[in-house]
Write a protein that binds this DNA or RNA. Structure first.
Lengths: 236, 236
DNA sequence: AAGTGGTCTAGACCACGCA
DNA sequence: GCGTGGTCTAGACCACTTG
């Protein structure tokens, strides 16, 4: 990446994570940073804006910028993180089982969710996520076949996001997420180790590409004891 | 508010909400906007950045900015919205019942959560939120007595946030939120109409002021059928 | 009064999409 | 090649905090 403000951001994140900038410590002033990075204040401010949005610092008018100790992303569905990125932190304890991979005609519900034309067909991928040999998450992914023409078992076992971004060159940009709690369905009982739990946490995900086109709908169904969502929010 | 870029943001939000800028329509280019609002591009860009962060538009390099149709905030605990702001949208159907208001010595758990000194005392406010005559949310709020010296039943029935921001002049800045699902406690059974539900959605909230000091810990316990969380997230 | 962050200006060059 | 948004510069004035 060539962007100066990204480099400055990365640099400051490293300093914070290495503890060279301690929690509650004050950053150098924007003027000082501008000089030491040989740039102008506006560019420094872009870097600090990023740090602030990501929860690393708090800016206080008239005083300066303070390093925060809000721990980052313990176990999030927050933001947009794929299961593979998450699993890599969990080591060998996480596993993905692909149950099925089909091209189907969408029912009315899916046709509406994905805003499809009458003749459009879709991919349906059903996967089970396993932690410590327990099946605790059921993921149902739906893609427009027009946009993702090929999909293999191997890709699904790995990371679909990786395939889409790296192989196909499509860029995932933003998502709308909805979390509710429902009764388990037949399917949930069939695929998951529910152990008598009488509720399922349902995360519905609408994923959009760079050009604002909706291209994926995902339902992620979690056993309640294995569900955790962490979020960082700023007022207004 | 005197800020030019906030005014431009508000103006554009209005245009979108009134439908004068239609979904999937392109905004005028940044150069054009700069001219018509009699300002420079950087200022226009600050307004557009806000629109983008709040999910109103998508910027596409080389093309322009497109109006999105992601509906805003149906029923959020997302962001930082107080129950009163929410209730005002629900009309007469929502009600708050203050169960208790006490000054207590914190137990070890709370002392750790609120980062208190040994002798610090805290406020404990227990409130039940009622929708359509059903008690569905149990809110437990804890404040450091040092920061909020006075608190009355009346304030608790209304909005504590309003009191803190408008009367005391403290500014709420950001929060860390965690959502999990747990078994109902004795207390949940006592205060809520659980109707046989065997799970409770627990939202833990750590609220920070402007100067990055933690001043409130809240546990919000929802009956699962009345819980819904909506989020808008951008990748990276 | 000095230092801080917040806003704003008037330019500049670049990378990208499209015709 | 033209128009778009993305980045960057070198200033300026303001509101706020603190000694």
């Amino acid at each position: 990446m060539n962007n100066k403000y990204i480099k400055i951001y990365d640099d400051l994140v490293s300093l914070i994570q290495e503890g060279k900038l301690k929690v509650h410590a004050k950053l150098p002033s924007e003027h000082e940073l501008a000089e030491s990075y040989d740039t102008t204040r506006e560019t420094i401010r872009k870097a600090l804006k990023l740090l602030s949005e990501h929860g690393y610092i708090q800016k206080v008018r008239g005083k300066g910028s303070i390093v925060l100790d809000v721990k980052k992303f313990d176990f999030p569905i927050s933001g947009l993180v794929s299961f593979k990125e998450l699993a890599s932190k969990m080591g060998q304890r996480a596993k993905t089982l692909v149950q099925s991979l089909d091209v189907i005609n969408p029912n009315d519900y899916l046709r509406e969710q994905l805003k499809l034309k009458k003749t459009d067909k879709i991919w349906e991928v059903i996967r089970v996520r396993q932690f410590d040999d327990e099946k605790v998450i059921l993921d149902k992914d739906y893609f427009n076949k027009k946009m993702i023409t090929d999909l293999t078992m191997q890709v699904c076992e790995n990371s679909i996001y990786e395939y889409i971004e790296e192989e196909l060159g499509l860029i995932i940009s933003f998502a709308k997420k909805e979390i509710t709690v429902e009764e388990p369905t037949e399917e949930d009982h069939q695929f998951l180790d529910l152990q008598g739990f009488s509720n399922i946490v349902v995360v519905k995900n609408y994923v959009y590409l760079d050009d604002a086109s909706l291209f994926q709908y995902t339902e992620s169904r979690h056993r309640p004891d294995k569900f955790r969502f962490v979020d960082f929010a700023r007022r207004k």
